[in-house]
Design a protein around this nucleic acid. Sequence first.
DNA 1: CTGAAAGCGCTTACAG
DNA 2: CTGAAAGCGCTTACAG
Lengths: 336, 336
Amino acid sequence: MIKIATIKDVAEKAGVSTATVSHVINETRFVSESTKEKVIQSMKELNYKPNKLASSLRSKKSNIIGFIVPDIANFFFTGIAHYIEKELKQRGYSLFISNSDENIENEKQQFEKLKAHFVDGIIVAPAKGDHSFLVDMNKENECPIVFIDRKPDNIKGVSILVDNVNGSYKAITHFIEKGHKKIGIITGLPGITSTYERLEGYKKALADNNIPIKNGYIKIGDSRFDSGYKLTKELVKNTDISALYVTNNLMCVGAMEYLNDKDITIPDDIAIIGFDDYKWASITNPPLSVISQPIKKIGESTVKELMSLIRKDNNKKININKTIRMKTKFIIRESC
Amino acid sequence: MIKIATIKDVAEKAGVSTATVSHVINETRFVSESTKEKVIQSMKELNYKPNKLASSLRSKKSNIIGFIVPDIANFFFTGIAHYIEKELKQRGYSLFISNSDENIENEKQQFEKLKAHFVDGIIVAPAKGDHSFLVDMNKENECPIVFIDRKPDNIKGVSILVDNVNGSYKAITHFIEKGHKKIGIITGLPGITSTYERLEGYKKALADNNIPIKNGYIKIGDSRFDSGYKLTKELVKNTDISALYVTNNLMCVGAMEYLNDKDITIPDDIAIIGFDDYKWASITNPPLSVISQPIKKIGESTVKELMSLIRKDNNKKININKTIRMKTKFIIRESC
DNA sequence: CTGAAAGCGCTTACAG
DNA sequence: CTGAAAGCGCTTACAG
């Protein structure tokens, strides 16, 4: 274990002060060419790497952005993460992703950990639950936050969401146009804005077409594969639905698996529309129609908003309340 | 922006030294009940949260583990990440995931960033390229590393891999038993051990069955959807294969999409076997046969090995060289 | 054009 | 049983 070089070592070797070394590294004040050269030379010889931790401790900046996802195994979030990371990199930031597992306690811990490391901003798809801890946090230690996919109740902030109501509306209207009247829905976790909104769109489309809303057709899932399977089974056994709308990708796979298992033909016996598009949605049996979210645009827009928050001075940030809605697209394949 | 409480504030309020507060927090030496109570009370009143950054700077420990994945949008890695995070959490660690995008320069940067934040260990699926920077890094600043999925050339360390050769062997043998002799393969990125090994298994199975290896049947991909599509097209147009083995999940989706697009029936016209199992592999047209990796076990085993490295004293770590091979499973569905 | 020095918020030998 | 103080490796007003 060789001693690792510090800024002091570099300063001594170059015969300058640590201040000068620091300014050479960060380009934070003018340094004459000749001393600059000496410093750079010394850094090379010592193989010096600035310790970011110490630097963050002092400057309260890290060039790191945190992204708290509710499910690291959900393609939707990792797809967005991919684009966020790309955008961030261009601007000199790194992205650290962590997984709350849809648990507000985990999420809170991760917020604290991230803040303790002086991340310059946090992107979060908030789990269900009371987020009032955020206002306390931000009182003490301002850190820009952007909400994504959903937003917490009663908390101001900027959110990048999708036109969930309209997305559902398009799907259900399509079913109706095809003659369906008995349309089931499997929603995501309750207590999340996107769940609520997607259900709203379903109800609105039915109401606008004078089709009564039947509670038996509405199933509340947990966004995982298994509940998609199980709830589809319940709908098939207990109701006479001819169409099914599943508002989350993993549950939709579960739904299709059940229908395939039971040799229920899609779309002839039951038509189906899912949420979120993926490469594999084209090769399912039959190819799946979906309401698709613009993950690239979501990623880009998220970074853009975050950057503008980071650049603003602290006083202005607290009261920003802004919701951006991105457009969903209805991709019709063969399942409906 | 309220002033955030520090350990000094707590110490003053409680009428003790910062040393005592620190020891109460970390339980690092005995503190009498009465003073302990005073300290805890003061912490509560001030809503004190220890600054982990400062603590890490001093103690060189963070309770954070870094995970560098080569593709954040690949279900295989995020599936593993899910289990790693779960295991780590039980042991009091947090997981920060970052994405190298199969680029060694990115990976190196992320290593540095992670180390600069005194992560207690790093898990990495190394990108293609020269990893000698790792030995320099570890000379200066020892940090346990576990390699996963692949391992870098000429670098000692512990690796959690899968029996790739055998996995391929099983797939190809199955094809041969079904009467196939013209078997194509699409591999992942060159320069990665798993790619090499999976190709080896393919060649070995052919050789053991006295089937000549034809270079025209071997296509080198880049692990992404598009190359799966494109290379399948090339194989179909330029060769007479009756079976296709795709050694990566995203490329396999591309391959199936091409075959479906061209109405080439699976498995009658061309049989297909993929790598990695997913929920959606059961609902493709037809359901996909795959060589499945035990992602849960991989995650668990990775954390176990990492923990034992963290606990060992530094001198012993450097020379550890150990490879663990997990078993793949051949899941036969209807595509072969 | 550059330096001396305080300070970020902790931990930890040393001392009693 | 506890404290005074050095120090982790940086940044940054202040001063000249």
